[in-house]
């Protein structure tokens, strides 16, 4: 009986520790075959109520997006968006997004973990965070109906040039 109790406690601690592990697992698209270089992709965290995005690092060895965003105003619940992007011809292309929320009403803590959902959006991207608004052009810079990720990784598509639908 005592062994079972100790085992249960250890299992509980293990789950809690894994949930609080720093870093967001890298989404699978970053390891797919791509016509262009995906190794230069970057990640940034946008927080509602804050205009400047917070740069994060992509650690491919650990397979995680890591980093911290300081100087975030506390006191309310905030929504966040993790953008994956590349720079093409000097223009920022958002390839995909993951959403999350964080309750900052407890101002006694100075470090808050932000749960980033695993669901990945490559087309219905969130532009404005508060109120949340879907902005299709965010993940489709040229507005031709094909998302940035698809055009970026396609060998004949140009993410910054609108092409007719159905063109190869």
């Amino acid at each position: 009986m005592r062994r079972l109790l100790v085992l249960g406690v250890l299992m509980g601690c293990g789950e809690s520790q894994s949930a609080l592990d720093s870093g967001v697992p890298l989404p699978a698209f970053l390891s797919l075959q791509c016509a262009r270089d995906l190794s230069q992709a970057g990640a940034r965290l946008r927080v509602s109520g804050h205009t400047a995005a917070c740069p994060l690092s992509i650690d491919r060895e650990q397979g995680k997006v890591v980093g911290e965003c300081a100087s975030i105003s506390a006191g309310v619940e905030r929504s966040v968006v993790l953008d994956y992007y590349v720079l093409l011809d000097g223009e920022l292309l958002v390839l995909a997004q993951q959403n999350g929320r964080v309750d900052l009403s407890n101002t006694e803590l100075d470090r808050h973990p932000v749960m980033i959902q695993s669901a990945l959006a490559t087309r219905r991207c969130v532009g404005n965070l508060n109120p949340a608004e879907i902005n299709f052009s965010l993940c489709d810079n040229d507005g031709d109906g094909l998302e940035n990720l698809a055009e970026y990784c396609h060998d004949t598509r140009e993410p910054l040039i609108a092409e007719r639908s159905g063109d190869p």
Binding site: A19, L45, V47, S73, H112, P113, V114, I116
Partner: peptide, 13 residues
């Protein structure tokens, strides 16, 4: 709110 905190992104299980 003016208290400043640090966010640490983590992946949801």
């Amino acid at each position: 709110p003016v208290a400043k905190v640090t966010l640490i992104p983590i992946g949801a299980s």
